[in-house]
């Protein structure tokens, strides 16, 4: 039954283009193919009456304590009925925004600097720029327009929030939050944590005494936007 649940859920996510909420696109094809193979074998299993007897052996879980079974049931049902969503700020806060580094090398960053059209840069690209240089002069004439979800700064949650995204290397379980700090005292009155926004502004030396980032966006415009189809970055 559990395989059936997983196979059906996987195929359904695939059909609705929502697999990206859970895994990296490089696995899409493999996952769908194996789910189809699984569907064939699970269905074939029903043909054989024996399979029902064998399925009782699945109660091996009993040895893994009663809580195990409850967990299985809850997860089995939840996987089917709870609408798929992205990770939330709770995980972003818990994993500390920008704590992981990005693994972008200097060449890529150099290419970014030469790119010219800075308004097109994504959260990820700004974060790697900010990791390379925090010289205010470099950012003085450049406007950033970034899209992400709102998550509070750990040190100065009243005045600073991050426009954040999750970077996924394999599946959502390894998601690392990254984000561009935005300085806006009292932001919590206007925006909710986890809202998706597009922020336009320039980087200035951070006014916040507590925040760790030396630079922060001073927003000119903050637009609420819909969550993109592809909420993670890779």
């Amino acid at each position: 039954m559990l395989s059936l649940v997983v196979v059906v859920v996987t195929l359904w996510l695939g059909l609705n283009d929502e697999l990206g909420l859970y895994i990296h696109p490089r696995y899409f094809v493999f996952t769908i193919v194996m789910a189809l193979v699984g569907l064939v074998l699970v269905s074939a299993g029903f043909v054989r009456r024996r399979s029902f007897e064998v399925e009782d052996a699945g109660r091996l879980a009993t040895t893994l304590t009663g809580t195990g079974i409850v967990l299985l049931l809850v997860m089995g049902v939840a996987i089917v009925v709870v609408p798929p969503t992205t990770l939330t700020s709770a995980t972003a806060t818990q994993r500390e925004v920008n704590s992981g580094g990005l693994g972008t090398d200097a060449d890529q960053t150099a290419a970014l600097i030469g790119a010219g059209d800075f308004e097109e840069l994504s959260v990820r690209e700004w974060v790697s720029l900010l990791a390379q240089s925090t010289d205010p002069a470099f950012y003085a004439d450049k406007t950033a327009r970034v899209t992400g979800f709102v998550t509070p700064d750990a040190q100065d949650p009243d005045n600073v929030f991050y426009v954040a995204r999750f970077v996924v290397t394999c599946c959502a379980v390894d998601a690392q939050p990254i984000g561009v700090p935005v300085y806006l005292p009292g932001w919590q009155a206007e925006y909710e944590i986890d809202d998706w926004v597009q922020v336009t502004g320039r980087f200035d030396p951070s006014v916040s005494a507590a925040a760790t980032d030396p630079l922060a966006l001073t927003p000119v415009e903050i637009l609420p936007v819909d969550q993109p189809n592809d909420p993670y970055v890779y």
Partner: peptide, 20 residues
Amino acid sequence: DRVQDTLTLAISVIIESVPF
């Protein structure tokens, strides 16, 4: 949020591993 994230993480591990 935390319950939701736990579920999302668990599902992502399952969907990732099941094909293998």
